[in-house]
Design a protein around this nucleic acid. Structure first.
Lengths: 140, 140
DNA sequence: TGCTCGAATGTTATGTTATAACATACAAAG
DNA sequence: CTTTGTATGTTATAACATAACATTCGAGCA
């Protein structure tokens, strides 16, 4: 009961996410782990819920897809929504970049305090085109 | 060709959104306008795309649902993602509150400039429990 | 008038994302 | 060796979203 046990399905899922540059939908994950193993949607969503609550994966709301957390693989705490965690998502190449801006975290927190609102999750996502893809477009 | 023409379907849809306290999914909207009129999903999504690009409605990504814009019904410009526009969503009563924080807008913009990232949309959503619902829980 | 063009709309089918509901396995604690 | 809780498996279906193509309708104009 070390709080580290999370079953082998979660292991398959996080592995698939870590090996992918792009976010994966639940069904992408099913395809990615096949034919090594055949997972049902339910199973994948269960594993994802677990991984997300452990801070090892994030859901990208605007894509209905999932990514492995890019940080916190050492001693430092993993990134959590609510600390000014955000994602920059390129619609051209699909890359996702995680960032933290404490000032944003503070401003959001202030807004919530002002309202007496108790937050369970904060989503910050930017969609657009990354520098690399812009350059490519210019280069042609 | 005044750029204000947008067809009667959009009118039905925005009306349904404005009359609702809570966000509505596309299928909720279909139910809301029935039996006055019977709209197909395609039709509703088309109208929503239009309304959103006009700034008259917003998509709540974390709910896969839609709300009417709460501001900008006078001369002032409508709210747009990217100016620090955000939503505070109560998971208990379903209420959605729109807010603007220019500081957040600036910080996000700065992050994007730093990366040479060109944004097309910014999503900021907070899920949790509003003051009213918290009070109720305590009061019982 | 009647042509033509584009925008809006309608229709059908299907693709994609997510969960409900219930059955089984399996390990640790007692 | 039984109880209990967590993980897992299975089937079905709910909920969200778009593709592809047909039709209607109004504005501008020959």
């Amino acid at each position: 009961m070390t709080d580290r046990m999370q079953g082998r399905n979660a292991a398959y899922v996080i592995e698939a996410l870590m090996q992918s540059v792009r976010p994966l939908s639940a069904y992408d994950i099913i395809a990615a782990v096949r034919p090594r193993v055949e997972l049902a949607p339910t199973t994948v969503y269960r594993a994802l819920r677990q991984l997300i609550s452990d801070g090892k994966a994030h859901r990208i709301e605007s894509l209905n897809a999932f990514v492995a957390c890019q940080h916190g693989h050492g001693v430092e705490p993993v990134h959590r929504h609510g600390d000014g965690l955000g994602f920059v998502i390129c619609d051209r190449c699909g890359s996702v970049d995680e960032f933290i801006d404490p000032v944003i975290g503070e401003r959001v927190a202030a807004t919530l305090v002002e309202r007496g609102f108790s937050a369970s999750a904060v989503t910050l996502e930017v969609r657009g085109v990354c520098a690399t893809c812009s350059d490519k477009a210019v280069a042609r």
